Amino acid sequence: MGKLSATALLLCAAVLPSAAHADTDACSLLAPAQVGAAVGVPVSEGKHVTPSFVKTCTWTASGTSAVKYVTLYLQTAAAYEGGKQMAVRMAAAGAKVTPASVGDDGYYFVAGDQVGLLVKKGDASFKVAVYATLPVAKKEAMELALAQEVVGKL
């Protein structure tokens, strides 16, 4: 992953407030079977980075595959708006922002070969990202399938 890619994706996720539906556990929004169906390989049960922070969930692909892992990060609608403004500014440095038809508003943020789909629905939003050695368009399609599952549960 290029320096711009890593920096851009980390900024979009780390700079923003993370409170979205205080009682929602990100791992409860997608079953491993749903994640596996979207990415085309079996995945592990979702896990939190730390047990006390339930707004991010990671599913790890099993075996050797182009897909390494999938993350879901929950945040507020206000964080979504701030992130979108920042993404548009970063587009001037080589990143790309394209609309996505999901939820009330959505966009793909592409930096190098990395992509994340950010979606707003009502007063909540989330980012879903597939980390894989695949073309951006394929990752976008996988992320859209996952986002449509999540939107139905918010």
Rank of each mutant, 00 (worst) to 15 (best):
K127I: 12
A95N: 12
V102K: 04
L72V: 12
T64F: 09
A141W: 04
A14R: 07
C12K: 06
L29E: 04
V110E: 15
V88H: 11
A137G: 11
V35C: 03
F126Q: 04
V35S: 02
D123H: 01
V119W: 01
S52T: 12
L118N: 11
L117F: 02
D23G: 15
L154T: 06
L117N: 08
Y107C: 09
S18H: 13
V115H: 09
A141Q: 14
H21C: 12
A92T: 14
T24L: 14
K120G: 01
D123K: 08
L117C: 06
L154S: 06
Q114V: 01
D113I: 05
K55Y: 14
T7H: 06
A19I: 10
A13S: 13
K120N: 03
M142Y: 05
M90Y: 13
V102A: 05
D104H: 06
H21I: 05
E143C: 06
V115C: 13
G46E: 07
A100D: 04
Y80L: 02
S65V: 01
Y108I: 06
T7C: 04
P135A: 14
T133F: 03
L16S: 07
K120H: 01
K55V: 08
A26W: 05
V39T: 10
G2D: 15
S62A: 15
V102W: 02
Q148R: 15
A33F: 06
G116P: 00
A141C: 08
A129W: 00
G46W: 03
T76S: 15
Q148V: 00
D23Q: 14
Q75S: 05
V39A: 11
